[in-house]
C-alpha cells in the first residue's frame, strides 16, 4: 500500500494539507493501538501495523519535500546526491560528498567559499572580523531566500506533473519529473550552504555540536 493509498488519494503532488490533517485524525481514531488495547492479540498487531503505516504516510505527505522525494522514489528515481548510500560512502572514504554545483549558483558559491575560508583563517588567529561576519550573514540571507524560492518552483512543477497525470501526457510528465530531481538537488545544495555558514558563524562560540 502506498502512502497515497493510505489516504485514498490519487498519486498527485498537490495536496490540501488541512484536509489531509483532518483525515489523519479520523483514521487515527480508527486505527490507533489505544483503540485496540482490550482486543485480541491478532487485532492489536494489525492495528499497530496500520497505525504505523498511517503515521509514516502522514509524516511524509504533509511535508512538501518528503512528499516529492517519496513520489520520485515510487517512480524509481534514485536521488543519488541525497541518498544515504552516497553520504555513507563519502563519509567512509573521508571525502566530501560529491556534489555538482548547480550552474546558476557557481559564482556565488565561489565567493562564499572564499569568505568561509577567510573566516576560518581569522578564527584561527583568534581575530574577529565584523565585516566578514556581516558579509556572511548577508550571503546567508541571500541563500535562504533562494531556498524559499525553490519551494515556489517546486509547487509549480507539482502542478505541471499533476496536470500531465490527468491528461496522460507522458513527455510533459517526464520533463516535470526531471526538473523536480534537479530542483531537489539544488535545494539540498542550498540547505547545506546555509548550514555551513551557520556553523562558521556559530563555532566562534565553540558550540558546533548540540546535543538536542
Amino acid at each position: 500500500m502506498t502512502y497515497f493509498e493510505v489516504f485514498s488519494l490519487p498519486r498527485k503532488l498537490s495536496i490540501d494539507v488541512a484536509a489531509l490533517e483532518k483525515q489523519f485524525y479520523a483514521l487515527s481514531r480508527r486505527w490507533h493501538p489505544d483503540r485496540f488495547a482490550a482486543r485480541p492479540q491478532a487485532e492489536q498487531e494489525a492495528a499497530l501495523a496500520q497505525a504505523s503505516l498511517l503515521n509514516d504516510a502522514y509524516r511524509t505527505l504533509r511535508d512538501p519535500v518528503l512528499r516529492t522525494q517519496y513520489l520520485l522514489r515510487l517512480l524509481g528515481v534514485e536521488l543519488e546526491e541525497q541518498s544515504k548510500a552516497a553520504t555513507e560512502a563519502a563519509r567512509a572514504s573521508g571525502t566530501e560528498k560529491k556534489q555538482s554545483v548547480p550552474p546558476e549558483l557557481l559564482e556565488e558559491v565561489f565567493e562564499l567559499n572564499m569568505q568561509l575560508a577567510e573566516m576560518r583563517a581569522a578564527r584561527q588567529m583568534g581575530e574577529d572580523e565584523p565585516e566578514l561576519r556581516r558579509d556572511l550573514l548577508s550571503a546567508k540571507d541571500a541563500f535562504e531566500s533562494k531556498l524559499d524560492a525553490t519551494d515556489e518552483e517546486l509547487q509549480q512543477l507539482w502542478r505541471v506533473w499533476d496536470a500531465a497525470e490527468d491528461e496522460g501526457a507522458q513527455p510533459a510528465q517526464t520533463s516535470a519529473r526531471d526538473a523536480m530531481v534537479t530542483l531537489l538537488n539544488k535545494r539540498t545544495y542550498l540547505r547545506n550552504l546555509v548550514r555551513d555558514v551557520n556553523e562558521a558563524l556559530e563555532s566562534e562560540s565553540g558550540t558546533q555540536h548540540h546535543e538536542i
Binding site: 493501538p33 504505523s52 503515521n55 509514516d56 509524516r59 553520504t87 563519509r91 567512509a92
Partner: peptide, 21 residues
C-alpha cells in the same frame, strides 16, 4: 551505525508513534 561509526537516522525525533522505517 553506518561505515565509519556515523549514524544514519531512520526515524526522526518527534515522529508520531507508532512509527516505522
Amino acid at each position: 551505525e553506518a561505515l565509519g561509526g556515523v549514524v544514519a537516522k531512520i526515524i526522526q525525533r518527534n515522529s508520531t508513534i507508532p512509527a516505522s522505517a
